[in-house]
Design a protein around this nucleic acid. Structure first.
Lengths: 327, 327
DNA sequence: AGAAAAACCGTAAACGTTTTCGAGCGCCAG
DNA sequence: CTGGCGCTCGAAAACGTTTACGGTTTTTCT
């Protein structure tokens, strides 16, 4: 059916071993025969069977990525970068969606383990111990989750949140609401950490609300609580919640940013497109995705002695939803 | 290293052949020994090596999907469904992003061909002939592109567009602008087809503008042309363009839907979230994704005699950007 | 020129499965 | 009692590669 290494060998008048060498370690064969082999290979349109190769080398040439939700632009941004970088390095990528469920998350990386050289696990909801457990099944690099002993591509969301508070304080806000995302999520903890550190050095009142579902509906619900708390600025856990907040405020006749300032987090595309455009912090998803596969690839051919955790910088994007408070 | 079929065989005191049979075709082995094998397998945590299996069976247990842009929620919606359905059927899925480039598109399916049992090709920009060419490399099912002889999962976007015009005409609009997407794209042709058929039976003036880039910026540009043409309704090729139109109109002080009605297409999440919420047509992306892999799976074990092309219904979602014209 | 070293390449084993073939066995019919 | 059949299972070949090992040729050195 398909063209095999034997066909190439026959056509080039060499053994299969030579063909293999000519393709994978060219320095081991005389230039003349090598070009003969290469010619035969391209003429026949030969592509090595990766399964067979993997069987003997133990490497598959594949990597996996498991994300909590493929409908979330945040993760697809990561995915896009991972895919691109992997392709560059001649790796193919398996994708799986855990639907935010920790147990399928674990199941998925176990299922992938046999077919990949490593997997990047995005923002897992797993317990620390469970992560260590799945890390035993394959090479793992985390994205948006820090854990001692396992390499990770991180984003400085704490720093981003710090910048948000600095920005609001500079505008003159002194009473600020934070709308928490899921309490147990590592992201929320990080964002909150940056928030608290900034608040501590600025002498402002923090109204800590939630947790809320990190969705549009969560924002709708949270908005009322924030205005009831008489704050002049509302810091949402993420953009989608912020959009909910904006919608609810508009419905109630509260103008943004006139009556109250609002910030999001993530800089999803629609943050720039809604009106007024949302002040938010941009996450370097593409960069993180790229470094995640870089880490994985490095990890694969190295003595695994050091465990790099690379954090990429976030960036505050000031748009139309933040101004000085009314008075 | 990993636990192999031989380990299981040893522990169950049978041959490797029996283990294989017990796992893949249970009816061929005595129930008693089968349970002994199963016990041994689970005790050891045995998972068959799919590469080795694929080597002999010729099936990989993988499917591939190539999309034009992973940042586009439309395609990730498809991807999510494809992934879910594939997982259900115990298939793993490779994903690749062509970056809207037809030649990488072809290259990608060729590269995948060896590692998958089939690929679903989403909204390809390839010429018909090139599609037939890549279809030779592996089992192919198209999504959002119809081509004689190759199975496809389609969505009735023509019907959706027809519904849009019916809706606008019912509201009283008689002069309508259509903002074309890329001329050569199958999607634009389909939408335009539905548009023209509706226009023909309604006696309205159609102002055919473009093509424009199917992006926010394209909408900004198109908006001015549409108002210059003195239309009372603007039908955009897709939601993102519609958002651009809304932004540009707002900047110019033209109110929506008061002065002019606007419609989008695709029903991406932000269509519901912007304000006023966008009237648009919902594409059954999840359903299409599912049927795409169903088609692929059916195709794989059947006599390939019939070539099903299944079209899923679209649905007009009336929201806040459409009302009767001012006078 | 002769020997040692290096360069090149072929033979065959190995990777972990599935599957063909046939052996052993019990059973039933003739 | 014999022949045949059905059931269960083991031995071994096969899938398409890579790679250890050895053999042959070429180069290098004296």
């Amino acid at each position: 059916m398909a063209v095999t290494i034997r066909d190439v060998a026959r056509r080039a008048h060499v053994s299969v071993a030579t063909v293999s060498r000519a393709l994978t370690s060219p320095e081991l064969v005389r230039p003349e025969t090598r070009s003969r082999v290469l010619a035969a290979a391209t003429e026949l349109g030969y592509q090595p069977n990766r399964a067979a190769r993997g069987l003997i080398t133990g490497k598959t040439g594949n990597i996996g990525i498991v994300v909590p939700d493929l409908d979330n632009p945040f993760f697809t941004g990561v995915l896009k970068a991972v895919q691109a970088r992997a392709m560059q390095a001649d790796y193919a990528v398996f994708v799986a969606d855990s639907d935010e469920d920790p147990v399928t998350e674990a199941k998925l990386v176990h299922a992938m383990a046999k077919q990949v050289d490593g997997v990047v696990l995005c923002a897992p909801g797993l317990e620390d111990s469970q992560i260590y457990e799945v890390a035993g099944a394959t090479s793992l690099v985390l994205l948006n989750r820090r854990l001692p002993g396992v390499p990770a591509a991180l984003m400085d969301s704490a720093g981003g949140m710090h910048a948000v508070i600095d920005h609001l304080v500079a505008l003159g806000h002194r009473r600020i609401a934070y709308l928490n995302g899921p309490r147990t999520s590592w992201s929320n903890q990080e964002r909150r950490r940056g928030l608290l550190s900034a608040v501590a050095q600025h002498d402002v009142d923090l109204v800590d609300l939630g947790p809320f579902a990190p969705r549009y509906e969560g924002g709708l619900q949270a908005a009322d609580l924030a205005v009831a708390a008489d704050t002049t600025a509302i810091v949402a856990y993420n953009d989608i919640m912020a959009l909910g907040v904006l919608a609810r405020l508009r419905d109630r006749g509260i103008t943004v940013p006139g009556d109250v300032s609002v910030t999001g987090f993530d800089d999803l595309t629609y943050a720039a497109l809604c009106s007024p455009a949302l002040t938010t912090v941009a996450m370097p998803v593409a960069q993180a995705g790229r470094t995640a596969v870089n880490l994985l690839l490095d990890w694969l051919d190295s003595d695994n002695t050091e465990v790099p955790q690379i954090v990429a910088e976030t960036q505050l994007i000031v748009r139309g939803t933040t101004t000085p408070p009314r008075r």
